[in-house]
Design a binder for these strands. Structure first.
Lengths: 155, 155
DNA sequence: TCCAACCTTGACGTTGGCGTAAGGTGTACC
DNA sequence: GGTACACCTTACGCCAACGTCAAGGTTGGA
């Protein structure tokens, strides 16, 4: 198997996502990334989808600050989503589908709750910091004027 | 020195803040909390201020997900703020004050930048998740209707 | 055919943020 | 002054999330 058009080796993926190759292998090991296809010699071949996935994982890490285990749960829900998208499937599996959909919904709702709560608190913090900056600005003003009075332009 | 009115032992602080005693000592060790006063026997005595400080640290940890080293920088800025509040001080120290104020302002601005960026991204994620939930809801509808047609009330 | 650049799988190392156990001391209350 | 409980320091332990070799195989071009 030669390198298929559009596929990426691990080095390129690392560059484009800003993580190390070690991290990519680590994510694979932990089940956060599906094992990619390989070249004949064993080199990993990633797709654009994989790149997006990595970026998604990083966003979750950075923004939510949750563990990779939790993130795995979340991206697994993504996988379910993709699977469900391939509608054409045995009708017998409809109960299964329903279960998967339920699971995905639950996970997403949980995630949504976290995000909502955090945005809320972040906004609070944002205004607090804003207030503080204003306060600092006023103090600086006062300092400036104090200095002007203490040592009026002696030039 | 008996236990002063209004002061708290480490156990109470732990309970009220939801962290362990170990964590409180650890924060002290790392300079995130000023060494509290002590009873004659060596028991730590915390103030209400300390409690607030711990809660603040935890919020920073949880929301921003930054290292304790970074948080130290931030809460040190708080300390500067408190010091600057005691205005009555030798005039000779005005240059020093200015420097401290500058530093505090810088740190606060940096923090503000982080918070702002994160809130932004969080809001994006929020809407994404909302969309996804809607999609899931629609799919569930479809599944329901599909089932109704496949097996119409056979009672 | 040969080489440089790229990749592979182990396997051990590191850092942050605490947990936990040991062995001893303080405090409060009867 | 005994006892039950809260606290003290010291020090080793632990887990997540990678970092960092080491020793070798693959690829693609000259």
């Amino acid at each position: 198997m030669a390198e298929k058009q559009g596929d990426l080796q691990i080095g390129e993926v690392a560059q484009r996502t800003g993580v190390t190759q070690r991290t990519l292998r680590f994510y694979e090991e932990k089940g956060l990334l599906r094992p990619p296809s390989r070249m004949d010699g064993g080199f990993r071949l990633y797709s654009e989808e994989d790149v997006k996935r990595v970026q998604h994982i990083r966003r979750l890490q950075d923004l939510l600050g949750v563990s990779l285990a939790d993130i795995k749960e979340m991206v697994d829900a993504d996988e379910v989503l993709r699977e469900l998208r391939s509608q054409y499937r045995p009708e017998s599996a409809i109960t299964e589908k329903r279960k998967q959909l339920q699971k995905a919904t639950d996970v997403t709702k949980a995630q949504f709750a976290i995000v909502k709560q955090k945005t809320e608190q972040m906004r609070e913090m944002e205004t607090q910091l804003e207030e503080r900056l204003k306060l600092f600005a006023r103090w600086k003003q006062e300092l400036d004027e104090l200095e002007k009075k203490a040592a009026p332009s002696r030039g």
